[in-house]
Structure formats: C-alpha cells, structure tokens
Amino acid sequence: MREKPEPMQVIKERRDGALLRLVDAIPYIKFMGIRFDRRGDELTGTMAYSDMLIGNPTLPAIHGGATAAFLETTAIIELAWAEIWTKIEDEKLSGEEIEALPLPVLPKTIDFTTDYLAAGKPRDIYTRARINRSGRRYASVHVEAWQDNRQKIIGQATGHFLMPSKEG
C-alpha cells in the first residue's frame, strides 16, 4: 500500500524551520540585512537596501564589497542548505527534531571570484546560487545578483569551497 502523503503544514514547518535555524545562526547575515526565501528547495536571497551599504555617496552606488559579501553568503547558504535538505527530507524530521539538531558545520571558502557588471543602485539586491559540482571534499558554486530585472545581472561570482567532513 502507498504511504499517505504528509500534510502540507508539516512539510512547510519542517523546511521553513530548518532554513530559519541555519540563517539565524550566522550573525553576519543579520548584520548585512540579508534574508532567504524558499520555493521548494530553491532559495532566493534578498539584501535589503540600507544607507550603510553605500560605497560611493556621489553616484550613489552600493559598495562592491557588500555585493561580494552577499554573493559569498548566498553560495555558503546554498551549500549548507543542500546538505540540510537531504537530511530533513530523507528522515522526515519534525519541527522539534529540527530545533534539537546541532548547528550545521559550514563549508569554508577556498577562493571566490567576483565580476562586477553594473553599479548597484540604492535599492534591494536579489541573488540565486547554482551548485555546479559538489563532491565529497570540494564544491564549485556560481552565484548571480540582480536588482530590477532578472535578465540584467549586476554581479556574478564563482567560488570553490571545502566541504565539512561527514565523519565529523
């Protein structure tokens, strides 16, 4: 006999709970005003505009370093999220079980290359990451950032990451 599907509420509670737990654990994400929205397993980052992010007050434009930091954060969250997703979905964890999980060990950046394609205007920036390769030890991730128009990216980056060892 086929297993009865889980109620949607249970699924959402598990996935949103796990994402919030990951994101809230990293102080730098809060400091930069970054949040992540989820559709299924796909994440979209938003860095809310604030005056603190301005690098060139005469244009004005968002600081390239802030954009790079946001791109790198998105890559790390995407990698950590992919690991968490597999675990919580395979084991169908409940909200309380997710609360009880140890904080995830995050991947470490080996290198990160940012291309600046357009100045960041003083408004929100969005990002999405794609994991191009994810092996046992290394992962390669590409990230894009845009503002008004998804087709017109303002920055892109590729990075390599050292994955935490599974043996612990």
Partner: peptide, 24 residues
C-alpha cells in the same frame, strides 16, 4: 566585531567581511 561572525561554531569572521575590506 561579533556582528561580523560567519561561523557561529568558531567565532571566525565571515569571508565576505574580509572581501569588503580587501576590495576597499
């Protein structure tokens, strides 16, 4: 600065903060 921590397990500063400093 504790607000710049990227890895809560170790207290190490986020790479992004170091990127921003190096870019500037």
């Amino acid at each position: 600065d504790e607000r710049l921590i990227g890895d809560p397990n170790t207290g190490v500063i986020h790479g992004g903060a170091i990127s921003a400093l190096m870019d500037s």
